[in-house]
């Protein structure tokens, strides 16, 4: 199980849940399962989300493995200069 925290903008799309537990071993699986549960997340998941796994931020590499018990944050993908 991984504990997922959603950024505030996603919370209304996920039935007002900020913290969720999901059984997933990769980022891809995690995002798919969340989206199955809350179809409203599909839009932002397309290109607005970045995923922090134990503190390291991933913006594209959805095959990244998520260790069991990892702490995961869904963040907005930001602009840089």
């Amino acid at each position: 199980m991984v504990d997922v925290t959603l950024w505030a903008g996603l919370v209304p799309l996920a039935d007002s849940q900020k913290h969720l537990s999901v059984q997933a071993s990769t980022i891809r699986e995690l995002l798919r399962k969340l989206q199955d549960r809350y179809p409203g997340l599909e839009g932002p998941f397309k290109n607005e989300v970045a995923v922090a796994v134990n503190g390291t931020i991933y913006r594209n590499d959805w095959s990244q493995e998520i260790p069991d018990g990892a702490e995961v944050f869904l963040m907005r993908r930001l602009a840089g200069g």
């Binding site: 925290t5 922090a52 134990n54 390291t56 702490e71 963040m75």
Partner: peptide, 9 residues
Amino acid sequence: RSSYGPIYG
């Protein structure tokens, strides 16, 4: 724990 959420490496 960073103020924006994740834990630092």
